[in-house]
Design a protein around this nucleic acid. Structure first.
Length: 291
DNA sequence: ACCGCACCCTGAGCGC
DNA sequence: TGCGCTCAGGGTGCGG
């Protein structure tokens, strides 16, 4: 599931295949839940436009086009954005590269799940957006047009500060984990890194936000920065198509302390990792280390 | 204003 | 071998 690190790694990897290139034509699948902007309108809007920048906003990617309009992408749960040909894999670690599904490496052919297919005027490698579950989103914004989805985003998780988190937790009765997943407060945090950061901070995910101290808020933010930055360094950990044949989660796997380790010993105290549900999300923690 | 939950989708994993 | 069931989850929107 792409969270901030995976989206950032994807951004860096795909930017050379988008920025500075002119879109000759966009092919799409049929209208569906995936398309916030109807595909016909989307195709017309981007044809002939040059991409001038690719930015990340929380878990969103935003391609700026040369007429001032914007193409906004969200990878949802299973979204994959990649360029045709093995050269697109250069920026991945050898481990991550080896773990990629075969069709993503070479000879990929657009299938029913390939919702966007960018063809460029230079005739070079095409760029694909593939998303089997269609939890991802694509939308186009005219020059100057705002969109509530983006306007609502809070502070990027990498820029968040402990004090700001502490302020945001006051008078909030929700579980601290639910608050961390609220994109209007902190943008970019998803299920895996919320669990990992709370473990590093020694705070139980189910604790009411208003019961989190200033000191613990600092610890949670420090934990978030640590896990997010580390994951970016290792090439993103949890993109589902990076999953290796043995079911592990790629490079970051050996660094996961609690996520998907239910019943396994805590790396600090050896107590079995517990699993519960918070806000309809699977939640993992050490009952001994996290209070 | 805040909170909990249903919904969108498909593939993996499981039991029979 | 194969069927059918359940589960997973990001973000949105609605009902309480």
């Amino acid at each position: 599931m792409p969270e901030l690190p995976e989206v950032e790694v994807t951004r860096r990897r795909i930017a050379p295949y988008l920025v500075g290139r002119r879109i000759d034509r966009l092919r799409t699948t049929r209208p569906s839940y995936f398309f916030v902007t109807p595909p016909a309108r989307l195709r017309k809007a981007v044809a002939g436009r040059e991409v001038t920048a690719l930015e990340r906003l929380g878990k969103y990617l935003r391609a700026r086009l040369d007429d001032g309009s914007q193409l906004v992408l969200h990878l949802g749960m299973t979204g994959q954005l990649f360029a045709a040909g093995a050269s697109s894999l250069r920026l991945l670690s050898a481990t991550a590269r080896a773990a990629l599904t075969p069709e993503a490496q070479v000879g990929f052919r657009p299938d029913a799940h390939t919702h966007l297919r960018f063809c460029f005027a230079d005739g070079g490698p095409e760029v694909y957006l593939r998303d089997t579950r269609k939890f991802g989103k694509v939308l186009w914004l005219a020059a100057g047009e705002e969109h509530p989805r983006l306007a609502r985003l809070g502070t990027d998780a990498l820029l968040m500060e402990g004090n700001a988190l502490f302020v945001a937790t006051r008078k909030r009765k929700v579980a601290i984990k639910s608050l961390l997943l609220d994109q209007a407060i902190i943008a970019g945090v998803g299920n895996i890194y919320a669990d990992e950061a709370l473990f590093l901070a020694g705070v139980r995910p189910t604790r009411k936000a208003l019961r989190v101290t200033k000191r613990e808020s600092d610890g949670i933010v420090a934990g978030l920065h640590r896990v997010l930055n580390r994951s970016i360094e290792t090439g993103g950990s949890s993109i589902s198509d990076y999953v290796t044949p043995d079911g592990s989660d790629g490079a970051y796997q050996s660094e996961r302390r609690v996520y998907a380790r239910t019943g396994e010993p805590c790396t600090v105290c050896r107590a079995p990792i517990a699993r519960t549900v918070v806000g309809a999300r699977g939640t993992h923690y050490c009952p001994a280390c996290q209070r």
